[in-house]
């Protein structure tokens, strides 16, 4: 029996020591950010290319982490492997609702987002049980917008939840074009525009129309540990996002040239997307209240926030 106790004791101490070791490895002047690609994330690429954070704070190091998707970024932030992540408001609110200590540090962008369907589908009511709707994942902004439209038009937010197929944007595009059971794709720029080039597909829902007002498609989120522990870095980060956004808005031509080095698109295409009237790069966080209220009502969140300060750091520009 005694042997067993010693073994258990060893096991427990091993567990604890493993957790402790990681605390020390963290350095004060290093910020860990998830690198993401796509038109909506353009300011991040500019920030990286122009080394804005490093320029704004002497001695700062930026570690750019590759992450598969929003869920992975969120999990990495829970595990304290990331300080900063960019995502849509709904996945942020889900994490906040579950007790994650993080808040919005900046708005980032809005790009066209919408539901593309085969033109045989004229309304949400036309979806049969065999029709599949591809989107990045449940709980994503695409899913929440779809639920909002379902609630408005059909009276039940979750009525199409069993028709969802989780596919990345490019896989979703392929699946829609393949013409199998995937008859709709809730996607964003530039996949949206590519799909709509074909006469077989129509835009059934537009993100802004469904939402009924402007909203931030992507926001920047930082952990409490980063905000409290590295205030200088936090400030440098927020300032850098502002500079990157300004750069894109003021020098779209130059920005497109930089982005074309990283993206699998031509300079002209990128320029067309980032300077489109429908796209908006802006550090104001917009639309949190409406997302929160709807998600509470539809049961995706257990609680809404009381004060904007619950979910947004001080001095961050926001419009509810």
């Amino acid at each position: 029996m005694r042997k067993k106790f010693i073994l258990i004791f060893l096991l427990i101490s091993l567990l604890f020591s493993g957790c402790g070791a990681q605390e020390d490895a963290k350095e004060n002047k290093t910020v860990r950010i998830a690198e993401q690609f796509g038109i909506a994330y353009a300011p991040i690429q500019i920030m990286k290319h122009q080394k804005l954070i490093e320029n704004n704070l002497y001695g700062a190091t930026v570690v750019w982490e590759q992450m598969a998707n929003t869920t992975a970024i969120r999990e990495a932030m829970v595990a304290d492997k990331l300080d900063v992540g960019f995502m849509a408001i709904p996945p942020f609110l889900i994490g906040w609702d579950k007790g994650m200590e993080w808040k919005i540090a900046t708005g980032l962008s809005y790009v066209p987002v919408g539901l593309v369907t085969k033109n045989t589908i004229g309304s949400l009511a036309d979806f049969g049980t065999d029709d599949r709707i591809a989107l990045p994942q449940p709980g994503s902004v695409q899913h929440i917008l779809l639920s909002m439209a379902c609630k408005d038009e059909l009276g039940d937010a979750g009525i199409l939840d069993n028709n969802l197929v989780t596919l990345s944007h490019p896989d979703g595009l392929n699946a829609l074009m393949a013409g199998n059971e995937v008859t709709a794709h809730f996607t964003a720029t530039p996949y949206l525009e590519t799909e709509l080039e074909s006469s077989e597909y129509d835009l059934l829902l537009d993100g802004r129309e469904v939402f009924g007002q402007d909203f931030s498609f992507i926001v920047g989120v930082t952990t409490d540990a980063f905000y409290q522990g590295s205030p200088e870095l936090y400030d440098a980060f927020v300032l850098s996002v502002q500079e990157a956004v300004d750069f894109i808005n003021q020098n779209p031509q130059e920005a497109a040239a930089i982005l074309s080095e990283y993206y699998d698109m031509t300079e002209e295409e990128i320029l067309k997307h980032i300077s489109s009237e429908k796209a908006d790069y802006n550090t104001t966080a917009v639309g949190t209240r409406k997302f929160s209220d709807f998600m509470v009502e539809a049961g995706y969140l257990s609680k809404g926030y009381e004060d904007p300060g619950d979910i947004i750091w001080e001095d961050v520009k926001y419009e509810e």
Binding site: A134, V165, L167, N174, A175, V182
Partner: peptide, 11 residues
Amino acid sequence: LPLIILWFGTG
């Protein structure tokens, strides 16, 4: 999977 999605869809 990628091939199967192309050939047989996701159903």
